[in-house]
């Protein structure tokens, strides 16, 4: 299997737009930062950033909001990538909450995410005085994202105010920021999940091996498979880890990321699966199962 010509031309067009976004981010703002979460979207994002500034280096730091609960394989890829590409990698953690013993088990998916991701992100952006943060969100991920801008304005306190978003004309960006405003920017806005995988395939990018099927220790929880990635896993009554051939559609904190069964040995298997079954990657995320519109509320709080 390979990527057909028309599809490849669509990828070229999406790539050209994303590179334009990266360059505008670097040239029209004071202190950009690239948010890197190690998943497939971040992998594509990082590659596009390299391409935008090649043969020069990526002219801004790369930041990982680390909850402390990512899969081991993700940390491994992160550190190796940072070293190989010579990235200015910054790590940001809500250490205070961590010290207080906040875990996915103690606080539940929604609250844990708010404390360890949204709060940590806001604090790290403030501390670094970043005026623009690049994220990997796509419009096809969820209905409420269809109205998101590529350059998304945030009011003081990182608040997303849907009524105060700027119209986007041609390739002209209004970069004026006043009164504590900042910008979030999404170069992959117009990409679909399939585009991301096809691009990974075409550009031959390395992704975390968790996307491919392997025998892994898992427990069944809320209708999905949760992988036991280390000994911090807290089991519920009657839970016993078992070995299953599973893979992940989307990666986050290991106790909150659901795996699916079914074979995918390489990227092309993943592409075929999405083409045939047409299920989105969010189906496996415990965090989004709490009301169809929860993303919109999280954004208003300063999430991506």
């Amino acid at each position: 299997m390979s990527i057909d010509n028309e599809t490849s031309r669509v990828l070229d067009a999406l790539e050209a737009e994303a590179i334009w976004v990266f360059r505008e981010t670097a040239a029209a703002f004071e202190r950009p930062v690239l948010l890197y979460s190690i998943g497939k979207d971040s992998t594509v994002l990082l590659h596009l950033a390299r391409k935008a500034f090649h043969p020069g280096p990526i002219p801004f730091p790369v930041m990982h909001i680390d909850t402390g609960w990512k899969f081991k394989a993700m940390y491994e890829l992160r550190d190796r990538t940072a070293q190989e590409l010579g990235l200015d990698l910054r790590l940001a953690t809500n250490q205070e909450a961590r010290d207080q013993g906040v875990t996915p088990f103690s606080h539940g998916a929604q609250e844990f995410t708010r404390i360890m991701k949204t709060v940590a992100l806001r604090a790290a952006l403030d501390e670094g005085q970043f005026d623009i943060a690049v994220g990997g969100a796509r419009r096809d991920e969820e209905r409420s994202r269809a109205k998101e801008r590529i350059f998304s304005l945030r009011e003081a306190g990182h608040r997303w105010e849907p009524r105060n978003q700027r119209p986007e004309f041609w390739h002209t960006v209004n970069n004026t920021l006043t009164d504590g405003q900042t910008m979030r920017v999404f170069p992959l806005s117009n990409w679909s999940e399939l585009d991301v995988w096809r691009y990974v395939a075409r550009e031959n990018l390395e992704v975390v091996p968790l996307y491919f099927t392997q025998e892994r220790p898992v427990v069944k929880r809320q209708g999905t498979w949760i992988m036991v990635d280390d000994d911090r896993m807290e089991f519920e009554a009657g839970e016993e880890p078992e070995m299953r051939r599973v893979r992940f559609r989307s990666l986050g904190d290991y106790p909150l990321s659901g795996a699916v069964e079914g074979e995918a040995a390489d990227v092309f298997d993943i592409i075929r699966d999405i083409e045939v079954n047409r299920q989105s990657e969010r189906a496996g995320r415990l965090i989004d199962g709490e009301g169809a519109m929860s993303m919109e509320r999280k954004k208003a709080e300063g999430y991506f």
């Binding site: 109205k147 119209p167 117009n190 519109m293």
Partner: peptide, 16 residues
């Protein structure tokens, strides 16, 4: 958007 339905407003353009 939820905000649109609750506040009875229409926000700009949607891209799909």
């Amino acid at each position: 958007l939820e905000a649109e339905r609750e506040q009875g407003i229409t926000i700009d353009v949607a891209y799909r």
